[in-house]
Design a protein around this nucleic acid. Structure first.
Lengths: 203, 203
DNA sequence: CGACCTTTTGACATTACTCAACACTGGTGG
DNA sequence: CCACCAGTGTTGAGTAATGTCAAAAGGTCG
């Protein structure tokens, strides 16, 4: 697959907004981005936290249904949608690669739906910490301090909670010995088994 | 795309379970299916309600991460995963078709995430009724009585609520004139604008 | 008609939200 | 160097929403 243009995005900057025309598909090269969606009243839902290797912006709708912005300073590759479409039509080896990428996104979104539908605040936050850990692991990074480049408000907007409830959940997880040394940019998992249990996952 | 074997599934029957090996990809021909996921304690989350034309079971994981069962008597086409994989590798016209299907699923799941993350019980139920209406519309069926082939418990398991809260929300929507004549297999939308407002959507 | 299942409604408990105060952090300028 | 400030995070008290438990109402099918 072509790598496309490389684009720098500073932390906090918007890559595209809901309603923008769809011109490019992106792939995260460096840093973290978020996919967002806004309610009529302005409330924000974060649909996903993205890591290097994640794709975003792919849709055949006329306009973007979500927005995307950089959580940290980031870099993305931008591929014109027309290029991707043409590639899919002409190069069969892209079809399978795309399918694997898409099914991975679908499975990941199913996890989120499950978390939002069935888990209480504490389990949601525990699941989120484990999610971040797993993403670091898959990127081959050290897993010990789980890096958390997002604010409590960001986590709340992702987990369908308020900032205060997220903060309280962190405090509970600390009090029960699951996590420790929560100096906001990162968390240390003190008891993985307990944390997995708190997240309502099998040990 | 090949149509594959046609399989009948009686209402309530399982098509595949979480953990089953992935052998086939399915496409709904007739009826409604649900995609489910279960917590350790047995609680069920319905990830999606499927209609004719919807695909399910596509994953490159070793085993199914979700289950699928028939909500009504249904029929599906079953395509061996190997056939789909080979098709994607060799027939470029399938790549684009698959991409459109996959991005549609992704967008639909984003709607669910938004609903579960940001809406209260009443708005979730209102959104659900509108979703069913839209699916009927897209199938070219009459939209007036919105068909609801699922129980209150099914709706609750989809919307992250309890059966009782779903029932109360229906009662509220009736009392406020949004819907009427709720004889459980179907609902009549009495005031679409009000219902859309109750669902936190733009008028 | 009667047994069974689903839905509705009520009373109460629990969870998460709201509003508010306070603590911590990093950066800025005196 | 230290005091101040703004932004972020934490904690507390009271409130609103949803969950839980239980009972009654309605519908279906033998």
């Amino acid at each position: 697959m072509e790598t496309g243009r490389r684009v720098r995005i500073d932390s906090g900057t918007t890559l595209f907004r809901e309603g923008d025309p769809v011109t490019d598909v992106f792939c995260v090269a460096v840093g973290n981005l978020i996919i967002t969606r806004h309610a009529e009243n302005g409330e924000r839902q974060i649909i996903a936290f993205l890591f290097p290797g994640d794709f975003l912006g792919m849709t055949f709708a006329e306009a973007h249904l979500t927005g995307a912005e950089a959580l940290t300073d980031a870099e993305v590759w931008a591929l014109p949608l027309a290029t991707v479409t043409r590639g899919l039509e002409t190069r069969p080896e892209l079809g399978l690669a795309f399918a694997e990428m898409a099914t991975r996104i679908i499975n990941s979104e199913m996890d989120v739906i499950f978390t939002l539908g069935r888990k209480n605040a504490r389990a949601r936050v525990a699941s989120f910490i484990l999610y971040l850990r797993r993403r670091q692991e898959l990127l081959g990074r050290p897993i010990d301090p789980v890096q958390m480049p997002m604010t409590r408000q960001d986590i709340a907007d992702f987990l369908g909670l308020t900032m205060e409830t997220v903060s309280r959940s962190f405090s509970q997880l600390k009090a029960s010995g699951c996590i420790a040394a929560d100096t906001p940019p990162h968390v240390h998992i003190a008891d993985l088994t307990a944390l997995r249990k708190a997240a309502d996952l099998a040990p």
